[in-house]
Write a protein that binds this DNA or RNA. Structure first.
Lengths: 153, 153
DNA sequence: TACATATAATATGTATACTTATTAAAAAAT
DNA sequence: ATTTTTTAATAAGTATACATATTATATGTA
């Protein structure tokens, strides 16, 4: 009764959503990373580019905080990644029209092209990765939306 | 029809399991990181310690590759993290009995204590985080297990 | 208007996470 | 038995991800 293992509250690793989520996302990140290598983007870079593409459908001026909120990437990391995207010529920054503290981030022409390409690549990776869920994907999405709603930070 | 946004194959972000998974795991990682701060562990460090605790229930000699396979953390990263855990005095390494290339990793006494404490902390964080799923947690786990099975790398 | 509080962005420092390449030894193949 | 192929571990280099602290500005309140 005093072996190291008895610290767990589950008998099988498959009963722990946390450990399963760790394993699944580790494999998923790896697959995405590999696919994005082809266009020299990292996963977080892609998330910010896609967020820009997405938000620009409905919002005129997008700040780093907007991107941070949408992507859940913390503001500091967002700042770092945007700086890299600037260096790559995929985004540009201009002064915000009303808030002088903030910066408006926009995609460059090349940024739009790369982002669209990246979205296609990720669509395919995700299609492959989540194929196993079949019809359950709706339920899966629903659960994730539920978790998001209950764990807003 | 040529605005940036039309690159997506979903109309709502809630229809993309990939984006939802990104958001959920980002928030989840943040919550775990914050909780583990208290005992000066990172999430990956915890995963390896818990893996050691778990595997030692059934396996006499545990190598870094064993840990890598179980945790899905790649071998190089496993090596780096184990080195940190060594420095912290939470694990020890000895020559493997039969394979001279490999190293057997074991928890120190303090490592066992810290690991158990960490497991309790994470149990609580995960309980809180996944509470929203209610009875669905079984289905959620099942889907994750399915994804794991279909995406072995 | 003046002051306290909240917010946008970022410099700094530590710890992943991975790629590529290397070393040494085990396993498989002929 | 010798050669070929895998495999365990890791060095080096790049890019997150976060906490903490700082700067400058916006917002709320008296």
């Amino acid at each position: 009764m005093d072996k190291p293992g008895n610290a767990f509250n589950v008998m099988k690793a498959e009963d722990s959503p946390g450990f399963l989520l760790w394993q699944v996302t580790t494999l998923w990140h790896r697959a995405i990373k590999k696919a994005l290598d082809e266009i020299d983007l990292t996963h977080p870079q892609f998330v910010l580019l896609a967020s820009l593409l997405w938000l620009s459908k409905t919002k005129a001026s997008i700040t780093q905080i907007d991107l941070s909120h949408h992507s859940k990437i913390d503001p500091m990391t967002t700042s770092t990644i945007i700086k890299t995207l600037l260096r790559k010529g995929l985004v540009e920054r201009q002064e915000h029209e009303t808030d002088t503290r903030a910066k408006s981030v926009t995609l460059t022409e090349n940024g739009i092209a790369i982002s669209r390409q990246a979205v296609q690549i990720i669509n395919k990776v995700d299609d492959d990765f989540f194929t196993g869920l079949g019809k359950d994907v709706k339920d899966f999405n629903g659960m994730l939306v539920g978790l998001l709603g209950r764990n807003k930070i």
